[in-house]
Amino acid sequence: MLLISNVQGASAEERTRLGVALAEIQLLAVDVDKRGQGLATRLLRSCEVALSLRGCQYLLVKMNRDQSVVDWYAARGFQVLDDGQPFALRFEGRVVVFKDEPDEFRVGVKALTRGGY
Rank of each mutant, 00 (worst) to 15 (best):
67 Q>S: 13
19 G>S: 09
79 Q>G: 00
88 A>E: 12
16 T>Q: 14
43 L>M: 14
63 M>T: 10
41 T>S: 11
48 E>F: 00
69 V>L: 05
76 R>I: 01
20 V>S: 11
74 A>L: 02
8 Q>P: 07
38 G>V: 04
72 W>V: 01
44 L>P: 00
86 P>K: 11
59 L>Q: 04
46 S>A: 15
23 A>E: 01
49 V>H: 11
86 P>S: 13
57 Q>H: 15
28 L>N: 10
55 G>L: 03
32 V>A: 13
53 L>Y: 06
43 L>P: 03
15 R>C: 12
17 R>T: 04
34 K>S: 10
98 F>R: 02
9 G>E: 15
9 G>D: 15
68 S>C: 06
68 S>T: 13
69 V>E: 03
62 K>E: 03
85 Q>D: 03
42 R>E: 08
14 E>V: 04
29 A>F: 13
60 L>S: 05
70 V>G: 00
92 E>W: 02
69 V>R: 04
16 T>C: 06
54 R>I: 02
25 I>V: 15
59 L>W: 00
79 Q>K: 15
46 S>D: 10
56 C>G: 06
90 R>C: 10
35 R>L: 07
46 S>C: 09
13 E>C: 04
60 L>K: 11
32 V>H: 10
99 K>M: 10
71 D>K: 01
38 G>W: 06
33 D>W: 13
39 L>H: 14
35 R>K: 14
97 V>E: 14
12 A>L: 09
33 D>V: 11
57 Q>L: 08
21 A>Q: 08
85 Q>N: 05
29 A>P: 06
43 L>K: 05
84 G>R: 12
85 Q>R: 12
8 Q>I: 13
48 E>V: 02
82 D>A: 14
14 E>M: 07
18 L>H: 06
87 F>E: 01
46 S>K: 14
78 F>N: 02
34 K>E: 10
32 V>K: 14
96 V>S: 11
88 A>R: 12
95 V>R: 10
77 G>W: 02
48 E>N: 02
45 R>V: 05
76 R>V: 00
25 I>R: 07
23 A>L: 02
15 R>L: 03
80 V>I: 09
53 L>D: 11
49 V>N: 08
90 R>D: 13
68 S>Q: 13
66 D>L: 09
75 A>M: 01
83 D>R: 13
65 R>W: 03
68 S>H: 10
93 G>R: 09
81 L>M: 09
43 L>C: 10
